[in-house]
Design a protein around this nucleic acid. Structure first.
Length: 419
RNA sequence: GGUGGGGUGCUAGAGCGGUUGAAUAGGUCGGUCUUGAAAACCGAUAUACCAGCAAUGGUAUCGUGAGUUCGAAUCUCACCCCCACCGCCA
């Protein structure tokens, strides 16, 4: 949600910002509706002021006659109030629905354009060199009986997978590595609910309307399965007020994520790269407005340091405006090198949502200097387990068909190779 | 699934037809005291919109919406949400 005051004062910025995201916003219509709304409000307020004044007179009235006279006058006044109230309500609803359609505006450092215009900021780590013919992760995974998508398809459908044996254990090693690193930095470890109420899903910008295609929805209970713990972590503090000294508030949430992948038919259909269900460790921060850009860099640094621990080669991408999505004002992805594809694939993503989600969910903080303001919210991937496993299997594969276990994970496991 | 209880300010929590934007406590801010701090004491402390250079004034806001009334945080109805107990399951 964008502040109406901001729209009134900076209509051009709103139009321009939304346009960068590929969204048309009719600011004139919004301002027109808002102006009309204010006019009706003024009329209604004038009327109420008269009524309130008359009320005081009634209390001071000496006899019944005087009272009745005033009451009669007021009933006359009241005749217009229904019409005014209705108009005001209609305009208010119209204004809200217009405002809800405006995406968060991109920050200054965001590249213009669409998916292809995202900018690679840096490349980190050495791509592994193989002196043998490499295999992709599914070949290896199936050969070593670590991944089974065939049986998953049989009993659950496409885009599901079984993780088995050592690779199932590695998931928990990854979780431990992430929790260890993040708790050291003050992140509070959380295992959140994976279902959220529709009002929360809407507040997080997860769904636009109730029939959203991308979310799993349980109509009997009016609940959505979360696509990331970002959604539960953000809505965790909805309606609350932080104290300034408690910010930034950081959470590390581990949860299963559910995605219908409705718009991706035919894309990445093989294996477990794009599935309906996967586990993910996610970072989430609530900050003061002036700290959010700094926090965003911090989250990116955390992501990078986690990747560095695994010694996986990756690149950092500054995502272009057209690819940001509704709530993000700025977004960096980390793409990890996948040898079989000879390209980098997205494994991490960190977004600064500024006050967009906080406004919708009414999450504020009390300023030391007095007054309340909306917080900023940010999120970032620590490990998307499935994709991290893919990267590990491929980058750590050996000539004899085995897989080396990254050193950072070994202390949580009783094996150093998978064969 | 059954039966009760409840949603009030930054927080906790009183109020249950007009004098209530709302007691009290806590928090926060300012001050007194102190070498400094704590404690104690004193004072201040909601938001939004409208008019105004300002001082200030007006209006709204006690879960949401509708109703009763001259007047509603307070009464009625509907809805949403939360909690407790019982049953059921783990």
């Amino acid at each position: 949600m964008i502040d109406i005051k901001f729209i009134r004062e900076n209509p051009d910025k709103v139009v321009e910002g939304a346009k960068k995201k590929g969204v048309e916003v009719d600011v004139d219509e919004i301002l027109e509706v808002e102006k009309k709304k204010r006019e009706f409000l003024q009329a209604l307020e004038d009327m109420r002021a008269q009524k309130n004044k008359a009320n005081k007179e009634i209390q001071g009235a000496r006899d019944k006659k005087e009272k009745d006279k005033i009451i009669l006058k007021m009933q006359e006044l009241d005749k217009n109030s229904d019409r005014l109230t209705r108009n005001l309500k209609d305009l208010g609803e119209k204004l809200d629905s217009l405002l809800l359609k405006i995406p968060n505006l991109p920050l200054a450092g965001v590249p213009l354009g669409g998916e292809k215009d995202s900018v690679v900021v840096e490349k980190v780590g050495e791509k592994p060199e193989f002196d043998f013919k490499i295999k992709d992760y599914m070949e290896i995974g199936e050969k070593l009986d670590l991944i089974d998508v065939k049986r998953a398809a049989k009993m659950a459908g496409t885009r599901f997978g079984f993780l088995k044996k050592e690779i199932a254990l590695i998931e928990f090693a990854l979780v431990r590595v992430a929790f260890d690193a993040l708790t050291k930095k003050g992140f509070i470890p959380v295992i959140p609910p994976v279902m959220i109420k529709s009002e929360m899903a809407r507040g997080m910008g997860f769904i636009q309307q109730t029939d959203d295609e991308e979310a799993y929805y349980l109509p009997k209970d009016d609940l959505y399965l979360t696509a990331t713990s970002e959604q539960s972590l953000g809505s965790m503090h909805s309606g609350e007020v932080f104290e300034e000294k408690d910010l930034p508030k950081r959470y590390a949430g581990f949860s299963t994520c559910f995605r219908r992948e409705a718009g991706s038919y035919g894309k990445d259909t093989k294996g477990i790269l794009r599935v309906h269900q996967f586990d993910k460790m996610e970072m989430f921060s609530f900050t003061k407005p002036e700290d959010s850009e700094k926090e965003h860099k911090f989250l990116l640094e955390m992501e990078k340091s986690l990747m560095d621990e695994l010694k996986l080669p990756y690149q950092v991408v500054n995502i272009a405006a057209g690819d940001l999505g509704m709530p993000a004002a700025q977004k960096y992805d980390i793409e990890t090198w996948i040898p079989s594809e000879k390209r980098y694939r997205e494994t991490h993503s960190t977004s600064n949502c500024t006050d967009f989600q906080a406004r919708r969910l009414n999450i504020r903080y009390q300023k030391k200097t007095g007054g309340l303001d909306f917080v900023h919210t940010l999120n970032g991937t620590a490990f998307a387990i499935g994709r991290t496993l893919i990267a590990i299997i491929e980058n750590y594969q050996q000539k004899d068909g085995s897989i080396l276990v990254p050193e950072a994970l070994q202390k949580y496991l009783s094996f150093k190779t998978i064969k």
